[in-house]
Design a binder for these strands. Structure first.
Lengths: 106, 106
DNA sequence: CAAACTTATGAACATTTGTTCATGCATACA
DNA sequence: TGTATGCATGAACAAATGTTCATAAGTTTG
């Protein structure tokens, strides 16, 4: 046991993994964004106004959340006519959710 | 917020679970606190100065992190002489970490 | 083209979170 | 006692995050 740059304490989850998961959960750890992820996990792709109506979140605020999540690589978007459709891009988001869903204890 | 009290989209992880996990990860999603959790997952109980030395974090700042985590129910502390020993309290923290560690994809 | 619709954007502001510094408080020990 | 050690605390500040509002920009349709 040399002291310093230990890559991971022997607990199964490396610092790297932990930080990746933390990033994902941290950037989605907000009621609105959680709901967005839920919707997009169940719906594959939705327009902004779809989401806005379903979640009852005002357009501008929602847009900020969406573009933020897109910037961080979690969502993707494509235009179709005057609508813009968002979808889950980062596969790990679903992975993490499924992984956690499989844990029965919570 | 009337219409959207849907308990969980059918994706396995309820909003409630998701928010609990998010809470855990969000409150630990910080380099120093991640390291703290790692240490305490591997060591059962450590004094503040132990942690301070190992992580090379200044006393006061560390103390703020520790008391914050304690306030949120994640850590516990007991005094022994002039030292105060911190330990992981919230079992779910370890659970979540182990759960994520079991997921191979990341 | 103009009007209507959908989404993005940016500025101002509010709130939360992280950091530092100085100081206080408790315990041990000479 | 009083002095040193270990930790907490609170104020001041910094930075990140969330929210609102007004407005712009891209698309369709009449």
């Amino acid at each position: 046991m040399t002291a310093t740059t230990a890559p991971s304490v022997d607990m199964g989850l490396s610092v790297e993994k932990m930080e990746k998961v933390a990033f994902i959960l941290k950037t989605t750890a907000h009621p609105t964004r959680i709901a967005i992820v839920q919707l997009l996990a169940a719906n594959d792709s939705l327009s902004v106004s779809d989401i806005s109506e379903r979640l009852n979140v005002e357009q501008s605020l929602l847009s900020h959340h969406l573009t933020g999540m897109k910037l961080k690589g979690i969502l993707s978007s494509t235009r179709d006519g005057k609508n813009i459709y968002y979808a889950l891009k980062m596969r790990e988001v679903i992975d993490v959710i499924q992984c956690l869903a499989a844990c029965t204890f919570l």
